[in-house]
Computed example of a mutant assay.
Amino acid sequence: MSYANPEPLVSTEWLAEHLGDPDLRVLDCTWHHASTNLDGRTQYRGRHIPGSVHFDIDHISDRANPLPHMLPTAADFAKKVGLLGISDGDRIVVYDRLYGGAAAARVWWMFRAFGFGKVAMLDGGFGKWTNEKLPADMSMVRPEPQSFSATYQPALVRGLHDMTQNVVTGAAQVIDARGPGKFDGTQEDVFPFRKLGHIPNATNIPWADLIHAESGTVIAPEAPAARFAAAGIDLRRPIATSCASGITSCVVALGLYLLGHTTAAVYDGSWAEWGLAEHTPAVAA
């Protein structure tokens, strides 16, 4: 069995072969929550794939919104992406250091949410790259600014109102990508909250279930298909994904895309918004 849509993934072998292509841009998307005392930009400066530039999901976001790394406007996204040296004619590969790719999947989704489809995630991320002793660099990359176009795609994004209405209508299946403890409310989230648990009628498919524990690569095609089927997810119906703050939910959206469900939307605010809102219902164990 092969993926219906394999294009969102590239292998380390492919990237090593194409690293010098003039139209290829590589983005190091490493991100960590502040509680970890780790910093993605610092890690990028230490070692990164040659030629890559750092994409900071906290910087390329709606800085006026108190919620974490919410989508910016299309104009702001286009401006900041252009400053990273990316033009409309480029191809993009994204990677990070967390278990194959969590923030990288977020950036993959962000580009799609602004109408750009020539973007793929490095399967296995920087961990697999370095384990294979492929080249890494410490040199800072200072790209020439380019012109980039962005057109917002609202069908791929869900907000608080959409998700509140969906509790009533059930129009979309909701997949929560957090771990089971946060899903059932027995474990506190790292973001401020008024309530614990999950959105009513949501299904828990932790994002790590789609990643091979040792290699950090996305699991073989038949495995995620079986995981979604076992959870009762119908790939023919609309799907919205959620998580803690709109990052790991993008891993699930990418997994769905690989299987042929290309229209899954991501709840941008996720539990960072839902768990803090006053009147949102929550289900806990």
Rank of each mutant, 00 (worst) to 15 (best):
E7Q: 08
E13Q: 03
L15T: 11
E17M: 02
H18M: 11
P22Q: 11
D23V: 01
D28Q: 06
W31Q: 14
S35M: 01
N37F: 10
L38W: 05
L38N: 09
D39L: 11
D39W: 11
G40A: 01
R41Y: 14
T42D: 13
I49T: 10
I49N: 08
G51D: 03
F55C: 05
D56E: 06
D56C: 04
D56S: 10
I57W: 08
D58I: 13
N65L: 01
P68D: 11
M70R: 14
L71S: 05
V81I: 14
V81E: 07
G85V: 00
I86T: 02
D88P: 00
G89H: 06
I92M: 03
D96L: 04
D96A: 06
R97Q: 12
L98V: 13
A103Q: 03
A105W: 02
R106A: 06
W108L: 06
G117Q: 10
K118D: 13
A120V: 07
D123P: 09
G124K: 11
N131F: 10
P135Y: 10
D137V: 04
V141A: 14
V141S: 06
P145L: 01
Q146C: 11
T151P: 04
T151V: 14
Q153K: 07
P154K: 00
P154D: 03
L156Y: 03
L156F: 07
V157E: 02
V157R: 09
R158V: 00
G159S: 14
D162V: 05
D162E: 14
Q165K: 08
N166H: 00
V167C: 14
V168L: 14
V168W: 06
T169G: 00
G170V: 01
G179T: 10
Q187F: 05
E188T: 15
E188N: 13
D189P: 10
V190C: 13
F191H: 09
F193L: 14
K195A: 14
K195I: 05
P200V: 04
N201V: 02
A208G: 13
D209L: 10
H212F: 01
A213I: 11
I219R: 15
A226D: 07
D234V: 02
D234P: 09
R236N: 15
R237H: 07
P238L: 06
S242E: 12
S242K: 01
C243T: 13
C243N: 11
A244H: 15
A244E: 13
G246C: 13
I247C: 03
T248P: 05
T248A: 08
C250S: 14
V252L: 13
L256W: 03
Y257I: 02
Y257K: 15
L259A: 00
G260E: 03
H261N: 07
T262E: 04
W274E: 05
E278T: 12
T280K: 00
P281E: 14
P281R: 11
P281A: 15
V283D: 08
A285K: 13
